[in-house]
Nucleic acid binder design. Structure first.
Lengths: 362, 362
DNA sequence: CCCCTTGCCGAAACCGGTTTCGGAAATTTG
DNA sequence: CAAATTTCCGAAACCGGTTTCGGCAAGGGG
């Protein structure tokens, strides 16, 4: 840290070397018309004198502030909230590799988000943006695409024109989960979709259906619950699925938080999670490890996602084509206690639920 | 969002008004030597043409980028991790009130943190910093103080020279908790301190001791467990306290995560949380609401803290004295199920624990 | 030996704002 | 009505870098 008012400028550095600032600048930025000897001499002096160019002074000519923009929508149901620290760590570390930083803002609505994206890009607080939690139809994407502002999606979307992205293959996870449950003997497998309008909801649902198809199981609308993204909705949806004439013996949840509610619903039917009813979910939130039994779920490496997104965005800003900047990763299955072999047929399960229910009413 | 290459500069704006850019600049920045009529005319045109000054172009002359710096240490035991989203939302909203933004970085160690603080301040990616989770002796503070870089603490510290801060009075919470437990009949009240070296640990311990003193209870070193900041440590520490000849009938935990472990320890002694042993903790993490019974704890309004810190830092950067920028808030007690009336004397509790233990061994 | 490259660096323009300074016009004062 | 202020705006310097352009000197080829 420099003493107050003692910062060394490029002029100071140049003077101390007997060069002009233009030479120094070119030496530091690896221009080819600077001799190797001079380049080394300049680098050394810069390091000794602890010279660091002011990023905004550079930006005025280069047009780049070397900053990634991220606008978080906090009102939103936030499955990713628990991962936020990791996500941000991933982004900042990925950014640091290229000497970039992260500029963060929070918004309360989509309209507010777009307002901030415009403001931040016009004031050049950021050179481009990472858009988390993409929708099938995403107004943020339209706005940025329209304004020719570089961006990268965390997730995919419907209209992929000009879009770069990193995403986790949630559809693959759901498909595998169905296969696993089928292997364990389950024949009626329920499904709770995620948030309305999100792209991931569509993909995970497709994965579930594809899994059924591959297992040779027929689709049954009665097995697909309403959207559920939190504890309450998860509990309600699960209860609805269980109180049917042919209830599922296993339920697949698009998000962990819904699964937490599913636990409650299953218990209040007098059943045990992982025994009479199996649960597999997706996300890998920390609460899952506190549950009893621990939640079997597909965990996402959010930190790695952040790092990849940073890398992709920087390359996008530097001019690479969006089409060449698209990556997909996989979730990792945490095989824990909330799922197991199918113990009862659907009919027996229905009978048991009815029995317990009648018993309670007496 | 502007079409590509179509951004309006201050010169464009000036030309369209028949003025010079110096006049326009002063009009927009409320200089007194601009007539009211001109000021309005300029403002109106700026708004119509959607003019937004480039922040880095402003910064080159003003020296300020209007950005708050925050370096998070991710390796650290992270009690604040669950609150991160709220904390960041608070900061960014507080910053937005003055048209500032947040620049975020993450570090893996204290040394790394200091390196980043220096780098960010020297490159002027930020005008000042918020330092979360303060230590009694904090190298970050030394570095920034030494470099005359503005900063604000989230927490307090030992050497308060040049320090501004916002903090929650954890000591008051602990003191109140002791009073509450005393009122419920508890006479032997245990305590688990928090992380080693943190300033909050000292304060909360003092609060606990002060609570004892005010209740007329004597201090007993056997009632103070080892530091505990996570589930495992909380479980170990609690077990140690309970397996004594005169165990506590209530335990106060400095952090919620330790309390989560305490639940396990109490259960494995064959006891029930909130019945034979009461627990009160501090933080208000979301996991506390998932526990059974729900955790009684002092919740911190992290979002508000963030907003206050942003406000204080901005005023600090603008030159207000550190001494005038010190605020303390209070935690809010969540009266839930993990504490209740004292049911057993310490001796009876010890006997019960021994009984259950012997029973298990057979 | 001369000309033509090539290598290397200095001079100066430039980026888009802010701020200082000076002066003309309008207004007030004597 | 002249003189002294005010009011208000233009001209130009400035901030700290980057980038373009031009030219000198050394080296190579004919």
């Amino acid at each position: 840290m420099n003493a107050i008012g003692k910062r060394t400028t490029i002029d100071d550095l140049a003077k101390s070397l007997g060069l002009t600032k233009s030479t120094v600048s070119r030496a530091l930025n690896d221009y080819p018309d600077i001799s190797e000897a001079t380049r080394l001499r300049v680098r050394h002096a810069a390091s000794v004198q602890n010279y660091r160019p002011l990023s905004h002074a550079q930006a005025i000519k280069t047009g780049r502030v070397r900053s990634i923009g991220l606008v978080l929508q906090v009102s939103e149901h936030d499955g990713h909230r628990p991962f936020l620290a990791n996500f941000l760590a991933g982004i900042t570390e990925g950014a640091a590799l290229h000497d970039w930083t992260l500029t963060l803002a929070t918004a309360s609505s989509t309209t507010d988000t777009i307002r901030l994206l415009e403001k931040l890009s016009q004031e050049r607080k950021a050179d481009g943006f990472i858009l988390p939690r993409t929708y099938l139809q995403d107004r943020r994407i339209d706005a940025l695409r329209n304004g020719h502002v570089p961006f990268v999606l965390y997730g995919r979307t419907e209209d992929i024109a000009e879009c770069a992205w990193y995403d986790i293959a949630g559809e693959t996870a759901m498909q595998e989960a169905v296969a696993e449950l089928f292997r364990l003997g389950h024949r009626r497998i329920g499904f709770l979709p995620g948030g309305e309008g999100y792209n991931y909801t569509k993909l995970r649902t497709e994965g579930y259906l594809e899994g059924l198809a591959q297992a040779g199981l027929s689709q049954d609308p009665a097995l697909i619950g309403p959207n559920a993204v939190n504890k309450q909705q998860g509990a309600d949806a699960t209860q609805k699925l269980l109180l049917q004439s042919e209830p599922p013996t296993a339920i697949l949840c698009s998000v962990d938080h819904a699964a937490i509610g599913a636990y409650d619903a299953i218990r209040s039917c007098g059943l045990e999670v992982g025994k009479e009813v199996s649960i597999i979910a997706y996300d890998g939130v920390p609460e899952g490890a506190v549950l009893n039994p621990q939640l079997s779920t597909y965990a996402v490496d959010t930190k790695h996602a952040g790092a990849r997104l940073a890398e992709l965005l920087i390359r996008r800003v530097r001019g690479e084509a969006a089409q060449t900047l698209r990556e997909i990763g996989n979730a990792r299955f945490l095989d824990r206690g909330s799922h197991g072999p199918c113990l009862l047929t659907s009919n027996d399960l229905a009978a048991l639920i009815k029995l317990k229910s009648d018993h309670r009413e007496e």
